[in-house]
């Protein structure tokens, strides 16, 4: 979301477990958020009117979208609490794990400037936190990219918010991680 001052802060993350644009389920579906592609890749795209028509049939798509909205709300709530209570290092670890779960491979194309926006933290704080994770051999980073080098280590550096979100996603039955070792 973008503040009145023009500062972007991430409030939710979606990958191949879910969708973007579910606001279109309502008549006159106007978004109250901005959606941005984080890492390049492919997506299946459907015109809103087709999606809305199928949603309003009240079948399996409606159930799946409502589950997705429930988990998105939980993620937003957990992220809000996490940003208030936990250190930048813990938040960065959580965020990298969530991003890693939703992409293929270990390499994430990200700049520290972009990460500072996503975490709602100062860039200097993100630089220090990334340095600590690199020194712990959890990640490697080069200009414009971070590679998850040791997922177990990264999980041990994250706050409990990551596991709590994973539990919720598992209970909704909508999400099986591509990279996570937590659920395997």
């Amino acid at each position: 979301m973008t503040s009145m001052e023009g500062v972007d802060v991430e409030v939710c993350l979606a990958g191949n477990e879910g969708m973007v644009g579910d606001e279109a389920a309502r008549d006159g579906g106007v978004s109250f958020r901005r959606a941005l592609v984080q890492t390049s890749g492919d997506a299946l795209v459907l015109p809103s009117e087709i999606f809305r028509r199928e949603f309003q049939l009240g079948g399996a798509l409606q159930s799946a979208v409502l589950r997705h909205q429930q988990t998105s709300l939980a993620q937003t709530s957990q992220t809000t609490m996490c940003n208030r209570l936990h250190s930048v290092e813990e938040r960065l670890s959580r965020w990298l794990l969530m991003a890693h779960d939703r992409t293929q491979g270990d390499r994430l194309e990200l700049t520290q400037e972009f990460l500072s926006q996503m975490l709602g933290a100062r860039r200097s704080g993100v630089t220090i936190a990334a340095g600590l994770l690199r020194d712990a051999h959890a990640i490697k980073y080069t200009r414009g990219a971070i590679t998850v080098a040791d997922r177990d280590c990264l999980e041990s550096c994250a706050c409990g918010c990551y596991l709590e979100l994973e539990r919720l996603l598992r209970e909704t039955g909508l999400f099986v991680n591509q990279n996570s070792t937590v659920l395997q």
Partner: peptide, 14 residues
């Protein structure tokens, strides 16, 4: 919102 997206395997943020 004129189109909805189902990522595979791209990720988005809001």
């Amino acid at each position: 919102v004129q189109r909805v997206y189902f990522p595979y395997p791209v990720s988005f943020r809001w």
